[in-house]
């Protein structure tokens, strides 16, 4: 592969520390993202993992151009998009979309699904292919929602369904990159599994590229192709998923992996055997 689809180079983001500035004094700054670089090839999923305060979400927001960098560059398909103005940013937004953690608070409660998912197209002053109704229906089908519910409001959906609406909204503009910022973290385990499956399916069928932000390493193992481990604003280890999980190089990665609670593998094997036996017996 020649150019990666999304490339971040030496990203730095500093925030002013509240209460330190004065009339004439510049406030102290806190460096949330400290010289972070990564590349994602088309069709891949790069997972940024880390604990709270590691800078992973800020990095995602920089890459999605929701925040301005302090320094560093973001490139999409080889084109520097760091300094895009309003009009060009609109074009960028049709290539890179974001799915957030809390589906309810990131969907306008007073808008119907149809209005929510067609809004990005209207902002970009693009025509809606096939009309709003038909477009919404096909989009809802793609994310596994009942297309007859296009006139309902977010509160009428369960958490998992609401997150599907969030995904549908992201897909509406036909992006190439989707940034998932803790997109499955707030969901119950059964629902979480379905949403992960959906994301994988969409990637397989439509060749989407994901930047996947998560604190849950088990979820990351299910979806990532590459993994970057962040702590204190820096990437300390990056590599192919299985390499990072099976042979972590950095001490922090090892500490993180060790801390994850897990069901004993021997119990898990026995359960599968028992399940297979039961299935065989009933067949």
């Amino acid at each position: 592969m020649s150019t990666p689809l999304l490339r971040a180079t030496n990203l730095v983001k500093e925030f002013p520390v509240l209460g330190t500035g004065g009339l004439l004094r510049r406030p102290d700054t806190f460096r949330a993202v400290d010289d972070v670089s990564f590349e994602i090839n088309a069709g891949d999923t790069l997972a940024l993992v880390g604990e709270s305060g590691s800078g992973k979400s800020t990095t995602a927001r920089l890459a999605a151009r929701l925040l301005d960098v302090t320094s560093g560059t973001v490139e999409l398909d080889g084109e520097d998009v760091t300094g895009l103005g309003r009009a060009d940013l609109r074009r960028f937004r049709s290539e890179v979309q974001v799915v957030f953690q809390d589906p309810y608070s990131s969907l306008n409660p007073r808008h119907t699904v149809e209005r929510i998912v067609t809004a990005p197209l209207l902002y970009q002053q693009r025509s809606i292919p096939g009309g709003a109704r038909a477009f919404t229906r096909s989009l809802m089908e793609r994310v596994g929602l009942d297309p007859d519910h296009s006139q309902k409001y977010p509160a009428q959906f369960s958490g998992g369904q609401a997150q599907r609406i969030g995904i549908a909204r992201a897909l509406a503009v036909g992006p190439r990159v989707v940034v998932c910022d803790e997109a499955v973290s707030a969901l119950d385990v059964s629902v979480q599994a379905q949403v992960i499956n959906l994301l994988r399916e969409l990637q397989r069928e439509e060749g989407l590229t994901y930047l996947f932000i998560a604190h849950d390493l088990a979820v990351v193992r299910q979806i990532a192709t590459r993994v970057a481990v962040m702590t204190q604003g820096r990437i300390v280890e990056e590599g192919d998923r299985d390499a990072v999980f099976d042979a972590p190089q950095h001490e922090y990665t090892r500490k993180l992996l060790d801390a994850v609670p897990r069901i004993r593998p021997e119990w898990e094997r026995e359960r599968r055997r028992n399940a297979a036996l039961a299935a065989g017996a009933s067949a």
């Binding site: 059964s190 979480q192 379905q194 193992r221």
Partner: peptide
């Protein structure tokens, strides 16, 4: 449905028994 850290296990099975599914 529990994602495993040890292993990628194909499609995670959705919980449907007893109507506990997404719907």
């Amino acid at each position: 449905a529990v994602p495993r850290i040890d292993d990628e296990i194909g499609a995670l099975r959705a919980v449907t028994a007893g109507g506990a599914g997404d719907a």
